[in-house]
Every structure is written in structure tokens, then in C-alpha cells.
Design a protein around this nucleic acid. Sequence first.
DNA 1: GCCTAGGTCCCGTAC
DNA 2: GTACGGGGCCTAGGC
Lengths: 251, 251
Amino acid sequence: MRILEPEPREAAAFINTNRRRGLIAVFCICGGTYRGRAAAELPVAPYLVVIKPDGTLLVHGSEKATPLVWNPPGSSNMAVLEGGTLLLKSLRPRPSESVVLKMERVLEIALFDAGSSSVRLRGTERDLVDFLVKNMEVVEPGLDVVGVEVPTEAGHIDILAVDGAGEYVVVEVKRDVADHEAVFQLRRYVEAVAKARGRARGILVASDITSSAFHYLREYNLKFVKVKPGELMEKLINKNNCKSSSTDVRR
Amino acid sequence: MRILEPEPREAAAFINTNRRRGLIAVFCICGGTYRGRAAAELPVAPYLVVIKPDGTLLVHGSEKATPLVWNPPGSSNMAVLEGGTLLLKSLRPRPSESVVLKMERVLEIALFDAGSSSVRLRGTERDLVDFLVKNMEVVEPGLDVVGVEVPTEAGHIDILAVDGAGEYVVVEVKRDVADHEAVFQLRRYVEAVAKARGRARGILVASDITSSAFHYLREYNLKFVKVKPGELMEKLINKNNCKSSSTDVRR
DNA sequence: GCCTAGGTCCCGTAC
DNA sequence: GTACGGGGCCTAGGC
């Protein structure tokens, strides 16, 4: 369902009638403002405006993946006529933010019953953690897993293990290049575990590490283990390797 | 310019001819895959596909602000026919990632000469820092600014100042709620300044602070100053307050 | 609601 | 190019 070059009144009615029914795409020339935690002005130009039934509002220009202005799901979008011109007002309740678009011209409005399907992403950090838990020898031989996503006062530990000597080993996992933040994170966890449970050391597992991060790593006596998620991808995306083989890990 | 219910051949020609000329919106029913740093399958359903002249590819469903799958600017997008069906292939060079869409049906393709304007965001952390530098009494009376974005081995300090006693004061600024990461960041900076320049202390300036962050703040003997960027917004977004009044600060 | 952390984060900037 | 950090980040998961 679509309208070409609609009159403002027509466009407003179309938007208000259908805004909860499907995805609305508006090809238009408009200006606008964003006000909220920050502020921005949108210069008058042609844009693609998308209104989703969940309240999402997107205003896209001809560049970049990120919309120029937007409001996330949960916003209230409404078309109003003000002195014959069409305004599209979007209100996000918390935090209180607004996007107001003033339409100079509407070239097309289309309603489209888009799918609400979500994609399951594979090869994430969580998948890498799951793989490592079942293949701890990749991290270091002789480790026994104590827990995953273990809460501490400093945050959640990706993998907590114990080595043959009974010392706690904190494993922090990054899917890609680990930076110094990852090292500081690991250091905090090790300190927290040392304080709460006893002697502990740390291992950072990542596909690579920045030079600065490596410097801090040495300074804090932490260990780095390189893994190639790309090479493991086949295993990571085949969750068939889950089975009930967790008992095998015990050695 | 638009085509309704185009044949695959027609759609492919349209996309390949215009993909660098403007924003192309495709209303279609398709399935697809994403392969790269991670992996995902897009189930066959109706989607809005956006192809931008800068190479951006977005596939939107009826929910969420984030596309279901995408490729960022710099990707190469191409339509190909394979056994009579239309494939849209997007290749991102570095890191190597691909999105491939298999069109079951194309309802509409529209070409739109969207504006390439960019918005200037105001009320950012940088704006807040600039404001504080000119109004240091908001942070603490008696401070003299030494520098902004001062590099240290631990990172860049938002504001470095000295107090009446000649002690260095590291100021870390957050636009919104400061979490424990902000506190650890500040702690690192204070340690770096203490090591490089002499006695130093730290002040965290933010609109609020999480309870955990506040706990660490006390532990490290750091100070918290609450500011309301919302209330300062009028001043933050009016860059008229910049003038050449920087000399006044010296007092 | 608050807090924590990941993300195919994107994006600009400084080196 | 790499590295670093902000962002109106968004989004999911706990509590």
C-alpha cells in the first residue's frame, strides 16, 4: 500500500492510521530537530524516514549506517498538521527525548508488513566461551572449570577455573583484539577473586592484543593466549558440538 | 523513480545502475546470510532493504532500531541473477564480511536522491568539558586549568588542573550516569599523574553515579561532583559562550 | 527500575 | 593503517 505525492492531510491520516500496523517508509524533503540528552538540528534535505510499529523512528541520509536522527523502540510517533504543513512528532518517554520533523514535501509513503523475525547471531563471545569451557586445554592444560559468568564485586568473570596446584585462574575472553580495557577488567577480576577466595592469577584469551594492552599485561603478571575465532568459526556456529559431552571434559 | 513488482532482471539492472547514484529502498520478501566476524541466517520474510551510495547496506524488519543484518559504508553491493532469482551481494573488504540476500519477491524498488548532510550534535561530553573549563568553580572553587585532553600513559585526561595548594587535580567528565569503569579510568589517570608529575587527586564530574561506582570512588578517595547537563543544555548548545573569554578564567 | 557487559557495535580522531 | 574512546550508542540479561 502506497501513496505518491500525498497531500499533508492525506499523509497525516495514513501515518496515524497505520503506524502500529506495519513498517512505514516515507520519502520526503524535511527539516527537523532532536532534543533530549543532547540536541541536533536536521537541515532541510531529502531523507528516508522509517516508522516501525514498535515505535522506532529512523531518519536516514545517503551516507552512514547510523541514522542522522532517530528514536528507539517504545517511542510514540504521531503525525499532526500545523498550519497546513505536516509535522511528524516522535516522543520517547524515558529518557525524555523528542524528534520533530517538518515535512516540506512528501514524495511517497509506503506501508509494508515487514517480518518481526529476529536473527540468531553465532560466533559471539558467548559461543567462544562455551567452546573454551569444553576445550580448556586450548586455554591451558590442566584447568578445571569452576563456573561461567561468575559474579564478583568487580563484575562477571567469563570463566573461573582452578589449576593443578589449586590456584584460581580467571579467564577473560575477547572475540577480537583485546585492548587495555580488557586487561584492566581482568586485573580487577583477579583482585576480586584473590580477595574473596584466595590466591588467583589471570589469563586473557583473544584473537590478538594491542601493544599497549600487552604492556599492561606484563606489568600485572597476566598471561595472554591467542585464539583464532575465524578458524574456530565452523565449530562455533555448529552448536551441534554441544551434545552432552561436557562430562568428557573432566578427563 | 520507482518500479513496482519488477522482474528479477529488471530489478538487478535497476540496482546495479543506480547503486552509486542515490539511496535505493527495496521492499521485498527475502532470506539471507551474514558471514564474517560472526555469522547469522536471515529467515525468509518481508524486509526493507536500503542500499546507500556510500556502500552501506541495511536490512530492517518491523522491530528495533538496529538492522537485522547490515554492512557498513565502504562495502560493495551488487545485484546478480542466479537461475532466474535475484541475489543481492554485499562485500565488505576489511574485515572481510559478506551479506547475501536471496529475493523471493520484490514488491517495490525506489531510487531517492537523499541528502548527504550531517548533523552536528550538541550537548556532548566535549561541550560539557568546554563549559566546565570556563566555569571551573562548578567543579571546585580555586582550581586553575592546566590542560584539556592531556595525554598520559594511561590515556587522555579530560581536564587537568591545580588547586590552591599546588596539588594536581584530575577531572574526569561523564555526560550521564558514571559507572565503575569511569571510576577505574579516573583512578588510572590519577596514578599516572602522581607518578609523572607529583601529588595528585581526582574528581569525577557526572550527572549521576551508580551505587557500585560510588563504592569504588570512596575506596579510592576520589570525589564526586554532580552536574545536570540537562539544566546546562541551553548553555551547552549555545556555543556563543565561547567568545575569547578564555583569558578571563585566569582571574 | 538499576546495573553490567557485549556488539558484525559505529564513528571520529590522533598517532 | 592501528589504537583509543565517545555515543542520544543499542540490546540483552540479572536482580
